[in-house]
Simulated scan of single mutants.
Amino acid sequence: MSTPNPRRQLRPTDVKRLNRTWRRATGSRLAMILESVTGPFNIGSVFRTAAAFGVETIWLAGNATPPTNPKAQKTALGTDRLVEWHEPVPAVDAVRAAKEKGYRVVAVELTGDAAPLHEASLGGDVCLVVGSEDHGCSPALLEAADAVVYIPQVGRVGSLNVSVAAAITLAEARRQEWVTAAVHP
Rank of each mutant, 00 (worst) to 15 (best):
V108S: 02
D14H: 07
G136H: 10
L18P: 02
S121N: 13
G54V: 05
K101W: 06
A64K: 11
A171D: 09
H184R: 13
Q176I: 07
Y150D: 05
A147F: 00
F53R: 06
G44W: 13
S159D: 06
P67T: 10
E100V: 04
W178I: 07
H135A: 14
A64P: 07
R23A: 11
I168L: 13
S36T: 09
R17A: 05
P4R: 15
G124I: 04
E119N: 13
G62N: 07
L117W: 11
H184C: 05
A50Y: 06
K101L: 08
V162D: 02
E172A: 07
P6W: 14
G54P: 00
L10W: 12
A120D: 11
P67I: 10
V129L: 00
H118Q: 12
I168G: 03
D80W: 15
V108G: 02
S2W: 14
E87F: 12
L82T: 05
I168N: 04
V130C: 06
R7W: 15
V95Y: 13
L82Y: 01
A182R: 13
L141K: 07
V179K: 13
V157H: 15
L10P: 09
T68I: 11
L18W: 10
H184N: 10
D80F: 14
V149C: 05
A173N: 05
S45V: 00
V55D: 03
T3P: 01
